[in-house]
Design a protein around this nucleic acid. Structure first.
Lengths: 193, 193, 193, 193
DNA sequence: TATGAATGAGTATTCATTCAT
DNA sequence: GATGAATGAATACTCATTCAT
């Protein structure tokens, strides 16, 4: 991966995200991507060794952006439950916009037998949440005695799988209610007694 | 699709599950499948209208088998928390054996823009769990005031996403501890006070 | 290589020989070949595993045909020198028609690092000439004390390289004179004293 | 082509010979060559108008070097048969080291329909050998009445095709014996009676 | 039902060549 | 002269699907 993500790298990446979101990975050809990115066919291969190499790059991009928004949105917030609400908001927002790509990233990495990459990509997110959890424990906002690493994974997993199932089946008018139910589920589990 | 799932239908389906588990969907050709199933190339199309049609059939098959095992394993069990433990066991077992296929089913349906099918397939599972939840509410084993449908989805989502993240990154020696943490997480959230 | 060289195998092979003779290997696409052969693109790959696989098949075909003609043309001929003349005739005839393909076969096998195949293909030709040489020794038509295997290679090499150099540079009106010079060269070397 | 073969021209040419010897022409990219030569991609085109232009340049280089060595090795030698032995030695040496490139030059020129170049390149070699043959005729070392031009071609062809067939199939321990057989073959044909 | 030879559309990738610096 | 990023044409090969038997 190029260190300096110059104009062309990002043009291609954004074109790929956009095209794949609309058509799916299989039906997206390199030709589609470069056309939208406004570069030549061969230029793609100056930045990505193969079509498959797009998947982790996209995943990283999406998660980095989301994490950045979560961090930005929570930097002045001390209350743990507020942070959870913001995480839920962002998770549902990301899922709505990019559900197709998210699933593709997920399965793409699986197909490629490169789930380590998936974990590497998620690592900063887990790590950030662990820190939040530890602070909340210290502040006696949440229960003690939990494994913060695993709990972080479960929280994120619950939000993400909830968002996916919501957008794939529910009536969107129920969005706020569903998010509230998710929040309650988490609050009951984590709130200190 | 043939109503009567005769020998050949199942031979093809099992060959597909097995081959896809090993090589992934993209690298699995109809030719691979029919060779393993011991039938001719054209025979595939007597039972499945297309390659894509395999995905929901596989998903249905796996989920049906799993649900059947959960039902069988819990039919004499009254205690809600016992049932949850068994669900966790079966979910982790299924994920371990078929994580590739599960992800593929999931993304396959997404790629195909046919997530309704996914929901249809899950319906019996959700429905069964809703019934269990309602009985547990009645028995005052768990909190009241929850949306049983959404809670069912969240429970299943938590278990599945947990199992996936576990098998993709954790040391397998921690399996029991991870399952216990999952159980605790659920118990804290759902137990009546 | 298919045992039964059915219609399609041969149609493709002949189309390949013809197209490659005209355009050279690099500029000949599979598409060109199948179009001329009147079969579908994919059909090519039912008979040849790759484009490269054409080369030894062509080489074998040409040499088999040539050897067959030499054998047919000499079967009633006892005189060694008569046989040599017929070999020269056939070699020059083949080279004239197929010089491009011959060179390509030769380099194709070299490129492919599969010169063993080349030797395998030539084996019957060498073997036949060795037999002829041994008989000529017995009949005291030619010198004794030679290594028949190596001498066979040298005779064939001399004829072939002569024919190539002739057709690549000489005025065709000198054909008979050149062939005569070749014959003399060989006769001086081999004739018993 | 630059008249003055400065450092870069030769660096590129030698890199090309070396890379093509190892990987073959098709698998050798300009990128490979310039990397080994230590120059930039575009620099190649300052010295060679195209990739194809390498072939005659390589052929000329190899033959010039070989002819130079033959001339140097024979300049004080009067005896015709000694000269023949040295030619055989050098031919086998060159073939051993560069058999891949030789074949490629040969076929490369053929592919390019520019066999005249091949003849032009060989011209000095033929011419030198013709002179040697004429002197040998004068000295009554060899038969008279031969066409010296054609005989030169046949001698060279015999040596080269022999060397190629030898290195493509024979056990290298037999090298000296094979060269001796080649020498005998020529001596029987050419020696004055 | 079952077969499997034949089809042909579809595409990722390569790499010789150019050109602005 | 020298560079190397950018270009984009060109193509071997795959494989889901069909259909005559």
């Amino acid at each position: 991966m190029t260190e300096v993500k110059d104009g062309k790298y990002n043009k291609i990446l954004q074109a790929a995200i956009s095209t794949i979101s609309q058509k799916g990975l299989d039906k997206t050809s390199i030709s589609d991507i470069v056309k939208m990115a406004g570069v030549a066919q061969g230029t793609f291969y100056l930045y990505f060794p193969s079509k498959k190499a797009l998947i982790p790059a996209i995943a990283e991009n999406l998660l980095t952006v989301t994490l950045h928004e979560i961090k930005t949105g929570t930097e002045n917030i001390q209350n743990f439950w507020e942070i959870i609400r913001i995480m839920i908001d962002e998770t549902f927002k990301l899922t709505k916009t990019h559900k197709e790509v998210i699933v593709l990233c997920y399965s793409g990495l699986a197909i490629d037998h490169s789930m380590e990459k998936w974990e590497t990509i998620y690592q900063p997110y887990y790590y950030w949440l662990e820190t939040i959890l530890e602070k909340a424990i210290t502040n006696q906002e949440i229960v003690r005695g939990i494994n913060v690493n695993w709990t972080a994974k479960m929280i994120i997993g619950l939000m993400e799988s909830g968002a996916e199932r919501f957008y794939f089946s529910e009536d969107e008018s129920k969005l706020e209610a569903f998010k509230e139910e998710t929040f309650s589920f988490l609050k009951r589990s984590l709130a200190s007694r």
